Simulated scan of single mutants.
Amino acid sequence: MTIRNYITILLIFISSTIISQNRFDSVEIKSIKLTEHTYMLEGAGGNIGISIGEDGVFVIDDQFAPLSDKILASIKKLSDKPIKFLVNTHFHGDHTGGNENLAKAGATLIAHDNVRKRLTEVQKDGSNKPKEALPVITFNDKLNIYINGESVAIFHTENAHTDGDAILYFTESNVLHTGDTYFNNRYPYIDLNSGGSVDGYISAVKRSLMVINDETKIIPGHGKLSNKQEYKTFLTMLESLKSSILKAIDEGKTEDDVKNDTSITKTYDDLDYGTGFINSEKIRLTFYRSLKTKQNDSED
Rank of each mutant, 00 (worst) to 15 (best):
N184Y: 13
Y169R: 00
T157C: 05
T216V: 05
P130Y: 04
T181N: 15
K131W: 07
E132V: 03
I137E: 14
D180C: 07
Y182A: 02
H156V: 00
E215L: 05
K228L: 07
L119I: 06
D180T: 02
P220I: 01
N114E: 14
A204M: 01
I137Q: 14
L134P: 12
R116S: 11
Q123L: 09
Y169P: 04
H177L: 06
S173Q: 07
D191E: 15
I137T: 14
P130N: 03
I145Q: 02
P188H: 01
Q123V: 00
E239L: 00
E132K: 08
T178P: 10
N184F: 09
G195H: 02
G179K: 05
G195S: 04
S244P: 10
E215I: 00
K224Q: 14
L235D: 09
K217G: 05
N185S: 12
Y146F: 13
L176Q: 13
G126R: 03
A153F: 13
L192I: 06
L143D: 08
F234C: 04
E215N: 15
P220F: 06
D165V: 06
D199A: 01
E230R: 09
I137R: 11
I167V: 15
K228Q: 15
V211T: 15
Q123P: 08
E150W: 06
Y231I: 00
D163V: 01
I154P: 15
A160Y: 03
I147R: 09
G196D: 10
A204Q: 03
Y182D: 05
N114R: 10
V136F: 08
E230F: 01
S194K: 08
G200L: 00
Y201I: 06
K242G: 03
A166I: 01
G223E: 10
N140M: 00
H161T: 07
T120I: 03
S197R: 01
L119S: 11
E121Q: 13
S240W: 01
N140A: 11
S208P: 10
K232W: 04
D141T: 12
L176S: 07
K206Q: 15
D141C: 00
F234P: 13
H177I: 05
S173M: 00
S173L: 03
L119H: 08
L119W: 05
K232T: 10
K129L: 04
S226W: 03
D214Q: 04
F234N: 10
L176M: 13
L241H: 09
G221A: 11
T171P: 04
V205P: 03
D180N: 12
Y182R: 02
M210S: 14
S151T: 14
N174Q: 09
K242Q: 15
L225V: 10
V198R: 06
G149W: 08
L241W: 07
N184D: 14
G149V: 03
G179T: 01
V175K: 06
L238T: 08
Q123R: 15
I137V: 15
N213I: 00
R207K: 15
T236M: 02
D165Q: 04
G200E: 03
Y187E: 12
